[in-house]
Design a protein around this nucleic acid. Sequence first.
DNA 1: GCTCCCGGAATTATCATCGG
DNA 2: CCGATGATAATTCCGGGAGC
Length: 221
Amino acid sequence: MRVLIVDRCIQSTIDISNYLSDSNIELDFAYHGISALELIIKNEYDILILDACITKLDALSLSKKLRQQLFSSMPIIVLSKQTELAFKVQCFEAGVDDVVAKPCAPQELYHRILAMAKRGPLRGIGQQKIADLSVDYNAATITRGTRKIKLHQMQMKIIKVLAQHYPNTVSREVLEQEIWSGVLPDSSPLRTHIYRLRQNIKNQLDRDIISTVYAKGYKIA
DNA sequence: GCTCCCGGAATTATCATCGG
DNA sequence: CCGATGATAATTCCGGGAGC
């Protein structure tokens, strides 16, 4: 198991490293948010541990970036001296899985890492799990069970926007804005692309994953 | 020249609303 | 409640452009 610890306090990282030296956990360290992000993109980690006070890219921004832009499902634990509810809520809204009060005993951290690791297999960057579907943005594929569908560029854009808003409904206007980046085509080819996407998915998965919410938009069912 | 992908447009189907 | 009507969505076909 590979864990990335991001903390600007070198002594903290030394303490954790010493405690975990006998475990089968491979540790990497970063001392600010930007270098953490670079490591995450370059390597694959099973768990990310973030100190709330990291610099350059703060813990909440880094978490949001991982969830919303890189579609990473990697478990994130935040260590923080702030333990009030409002801060915790902010963390969870940013995509953090667990908030641990500092100072935190290395033993407690070790067991939290083990607990997180039990949740499931590693999921890399560019992949998102939605219901029983797995969306791979790098390979432009959707996988359900053993069935994998290759999507066209436009179909992938539609899925991406719907996935970003899952489980909410996305209006046609938002879809068009995000797909064509504000430069909308003269007519509305969105209908055509939605239809083709549905046909593509139906043919491969034997079911439709896009549902229409009349006069509201579309969502992933 | 052929194929694939995309946008445009027409037609058909479905849904929501309103009045009797 | 039910039918008429308008709004919205689904389906289908066609043509253009890019890539091979």
